[in-house]
Design a protein around this nucleic acid. Structure first.
Length: 435
RNA sequence: GGAGAGGUGGCCGAGCGGUUGAAGGCGCCUGACUCGAAAUCAGGUUUACCCGUGAGGGUAACGGGGGUUCGAAUCCCUCCCUCUCCGCCA
C-alpha cells in the first residue's frame, strides 16, 4: 500500500507504475473516491461534533429546556444515519482501490512485458556437459525410488506426489542445510503458522489479487499460506519496533500451498510445479531508507547464492522487468538454477524489495531517532524450495550408472553418504515402475 | 467439544449510562532543589483520519463487528483471544 498523500501529490508517477506493471487500475476512480470520502467525513465529523455538544448540554440544562435539546439531538442522529451509507460506501471503495495501488518500481528496473524482458545480471558455475545421455529428474527419481506419483494421485489428485526413502531424506537435508547457511549469517530460525486469517494475506500483499491462488479452509475462515513470508512478516503486525532492534532477520521454514490457478496445464510433469512444497525463506525488516533496503536486498541475494554455491548448482541471476514484478515489489531478482532436462536456467529463488508496502498494510512501525513513527521496510528471498531444487540437484549430479552424487555440503545431513543408489532397504508399499 | 472467569493507555489497575482520552500507581521526559546523584516537588507523556501555510481546530479509538440511547469503556447480540477445570489428542 502507498501513502494516499503520495498518490494525491504524484498521480503521474503512480499511473506510470500501473502501466509499466501491466495492472488494471483506474487511478482517477481512486482519487475521486478519496475526494468523496473526505467530503463525507467532514460532513459527518461536523454532525458528530454537534451531537457531542448537545449530549454534554442535556444533563446540565434545566429540565424544561431538555425536550428541545433532545429533539435536536435526535434530528442530528437522523442526519448522521442518513449520511452514513454513502460515507461507508465511499470509504469501502477507497479502501478496496488502495489495496490495488502498486509500489513504484526502482529506477533500475527495466520496463517490459514478460520474462524475455528480464535482464540477466550474472552467472555462476558452468552447466555440465554429459558424456552419456542424461536422464531427467523424474526418470532418476523413479529409478532410484525417491518419489511416488501413482499412489498419491489416487487419493490426492493430480500434481500430488510423495517423496520416499532418500528422496524424503534429501529434501529434509537440503532444507536443513539452507536453514543452517542462512542462520549462520545472523537470521533467526522461525517456523510460523501456515493457516492464517485473510488479514495476514492482505497485510503481506497477496490478497486481494492472489485469492484465486490460495487454498482456503472455509469452515474455519482460514487460508493456507503459499510461503512462510506471510507468517514471518505478520509476526510483527501492529507492532511498534525499537529502531535499535532493526534490522530484524528471520529464516523461516514452512510447507507452502499454491493452487497455481493461472498455470493449469503448465509444467504438469514431475516436481517443477506442485501444489504443496517446502520452502526455507528469508525475511528482513529494516529502517525506512531506500539505500539501507537496497543493501539488504543484496544481502538476501548473496545468501541465496551461498546456498546454491555450496550445493554446486550453476545459476544465473536476472533483474525482473516491470511486467514480471508483483504489485508490492519495488525490485525483484530471480535466481534461476540450471536444469539439464529443460536445457535452461529456471526460477528457484525470488528476491524482493517491498519498501513500506507490506508494513503499511500490516501496520508495522518503528520509532526513529527523531521520535517519529515510521513504517519499516520489508524484504524477502528464498533460501531454498523443495522439491523444485531436487531437479537441478538430481540432474546435475547424476552419474552414468544411474546413481546420483550427493554434494558435499549435504553429506553431513545424509548420514555421511556420498551417493544415492537404488533402494535396498525397506520397500515402499506401492512403487511406480521405473521408466 | 463442555463449564466458568476475563480482555481498559508503555505496564499494573479503577471505572460499570452523561462534564472520562479515560482515577490512582509504576515507567519515561522536562524543570526546581543539589557540587553532582538519590530522594522530594511541579509540569508533561497515545494513535489514526480530516480541515488549516501555521498556530490551532474537529472526529474516532477502552479486544473486533453490530445494536439500544439525546448520549456507551459502562446495557444487549455476535465473533476473536487469554486464563481455570473437564473431555479429546500428536
Amino acid at each position: 500500500m502507498l501513502d494516499i498523500g503520495f498518490v494525491r501529490d504524484h498521480p503521474d508517477i503512480v499511473k506510470k507504475a500501473i502501466a509499466d506493471k501491466r495492472l488494471d487500475l483506474d487511478l482517477d476512480r481512486l482519487l475521486d473516491a478519496d475526494r468523496r470520502r473526505r467530503a463525507l467525513q467532514q460532513e459527518m465529523d461536523q454532525l458528530r461534533s454537534r451531537r457531542n455538544e448537545l449530549s454534554a448540554a442535556i444533563p446540565k440544562a434545566p429540565p424544561e429546556q431538555r425536550p428541545a435539546l433532545v429533539d435536536e439531538a435526535r434530528q442530528v442522529r437522523e442526519r448522521l444515519a442518513a449520511a452514513e451509507p454513502e460515507s461507508v460506501r465511499a470509504q469501502a471503495e477507497f479502501d478496496g482501490l488502495m489495496l490495488l495501488v502498486p509500489s513504484v518500481p526502482a529506477p533500475e528496473v527495466p520496463v517490459g512485458e514478460g520474462e524475455d524482458d528480464n535482464v540477466e545480471v550474472r552467472r555462476w558455475g558452468t552447466p555440465r556437459t554429459f558424456d552419456f545421455e542424461p536422464r531427467d529428474h523424474v526418470d532418476l527419481a523413479l529409478s532410484l525410488g525417491l518419489v511416488n506419483f501413482d499412489g498419491p494421485r489416487r487419493y490426492a489428485g493430480g500434481r500430488s506426489y510423495a517423496l520416499v526413502g532418500d528422496g524424503a531424506l534429501l529434501e529434509l537435508a537440503v532444507l536443513r542445510y539452507a536453514v543452517d547457511v542462512v542462520a549462520a549469517r545472523g537470521f533467526l530460525p522461525v517456523i510460523p503458522p501456515v493457516m492464517v486469517w485473510d488479514k495476514a494475506l492482505e497485510g503481506t500483499g497477496f490478497f486481494p489479487l492472489g485469492r484465486e491462488d490460495t487454498f482456503a479452509i472455509e469452515k474455519d475462515g482460514l487460508f493456507l499460506t503459499g510461503t512462510s513470508e506471510v507468517g514471518l512478516v505478520s509476526l510483527h503486525r501492529d507492532d511498534v519496533l525499537d529502531e535499535a532492534r532493526l534490522p530484524i532477520r528471520y529464516v523461516g521454514h514452512s510447507t507452502c500451498f499454491r493452487r497455481e490457478a493461472g498455470a493449469h496445464g503448465r509444467d504438469t510433469r514431475g516436481l517443477y510445479r506442485v501444489f504443496q512444497f517446502q520452502k526455507v525463506e528469508q525475511v528482513s525488516f529494516v529502517p525506512a531508507d531506500a539505500s539501507v533496503s537496497e543493501e539488504e536486498h543484496y544481502r538476501l541475494l548473496s545468501n541465496a547464492e551461498a546456498v546454491l554455491q555450496g550445493l554446486g548448482i550453476p545459476y544465473r541471476i536476472a533483474l525482473a522487468c516491470t511486467g514480471e514484478i508483483g504489485l508490492g515489489q519495488v525490485r525483484k531478482h530471480e535466481v534461476e538454477s540450471w536444469m539439464p532436462s529443460r536445457g535452461k536456467y529456471s526460477e528457484t529463488h525470488s528476491c524482493s524489495t517491498l519498501h513500506d508496502f507490506q508494513a503499511r498494510r500490516s501496520n508495522i512501525r518503528y520509532r526513529d531517532a527523531a521520535g517519529r513513527l515510521r513504517f519499516v521496510y520489508t524484504l524477502n528471498n528464498t533460501a531454498v524450495a523443495s522439491p523444485r531444487i531436487l531437479i537441478p540437484l538430481l540432474e546435475n549430479f547424476q552419474n552414468a550408472d544411474g546413481t546420483v552424487t550427493i554434494p558435499e555440503a549435504l553429506r553431513p545431513y545424509m548420514g555421511g553418504r556420498s551417493r544415492i543408489e537404488p533402494r535396498s532397504g525397506p520397500a515402499a508399499p506401492r512403487e511406480d515402475p521405473p521408466r
